[in-house]
């Protein structure tokens, strides 16, 4: 068994958190409160030291960048959301963020998210001397086209369009199967690390 107090604390916290699998209980509720509080508190402190303090002290104070006051005031308006009378003022910072966010989508998304993906789909449907590559290219081209058809809701899907969109649905099922498998794999990995911690680091078994 470990002699390290922090390993013991980690083990107790781990077992306490797992206790929810039996049923909801006071220990889990305490740990839940701790995790929400520490996570939220951590982000406040980090944001203060990494960003807010240098902005106020270095830029506004020492650098005399008075223009910084404008976004600071805009951010301050957000806190009016707690006033019944002036809650509408909080719409201004929100509107500004959404305006820039929309501009980012319009200026940055089209090429990497759509055009490059479309270009990567334009594969040769006949690769001389490589039957495997030919098949794989067909699989990708057919898949992208059929899934796009499946999501095309402005045309009534009858006849061949229905058949083609049905192929798209099969592709989606395969993709979701892979996604499901990856979810299992990921969660199992995290559980494995927690169990290794309990068995190896804490209890000293199997080392």
């Amino acid at each position: 068994m470990s002699n390290d107090i922090w390993v013991w604390i980690g083990a107790i916290l781990t077992l306490g958190t797992y206790s929810v699998l039996y049923k909801d209980n006071p220990v889990y509720r305490v740990l839940e409160a701790l995790f929400v509080a520490i996570l939220a508190g951590h982000s406040v402190v980090i944001n203060w030291f990494n960003f807010q303090k240098p902005t106020i002290v270095n830029r506004l104070g020492e650098g005399k960048e008075l223009i910084v006051v404008i976004p600071l005031l805009l951010a301050a308006l957000m806190y009016f959301r707690y006033s019944r009378k002036f809650a509408w003022l909080a719409r201004y910072p929100m509107a500004f963020l959404m305006g820039i966010g929309a501009a980012y989508v319009l200026t940055k998304n089209l090429k990497p998210m759509f055009l490059t993906q479309a270009r990567a789909t334009m594969l040769p449907l006949w690769v001389p001397g490589d039957f495997g590559a030919t098949i794989n290219n067909w699989v990708v081209v057919l898949g992208v086209a059929s899934v796009l058809t499946y999501f095309f809701f402005t045309v009534k899907k009858t006849g061949p369009v229905h058949g083609f969109s049905r192929i798209g649905r099969i592709y989606l099922m395969i993709a979701f199967g892979a996604l499901f498998a990856d979810t299992v794999l990921g969660r199992v990995s995290v559980t494995l690390v927690r169990f290794q911690f309990l068995l190896n680091d804490w209890l000293g078994l199997g080392i």
Partner: peptide
């Protein structure tokens, strides 16, 4: 692991 499937298109496109 859970992010792999959704990120695969970027790998396949050379990004």
């Amino acid at each position: 692991a859970v992010s792999v499937a959704v990120t695969m298109p970027y790998l396949a496109s050379g990004q």
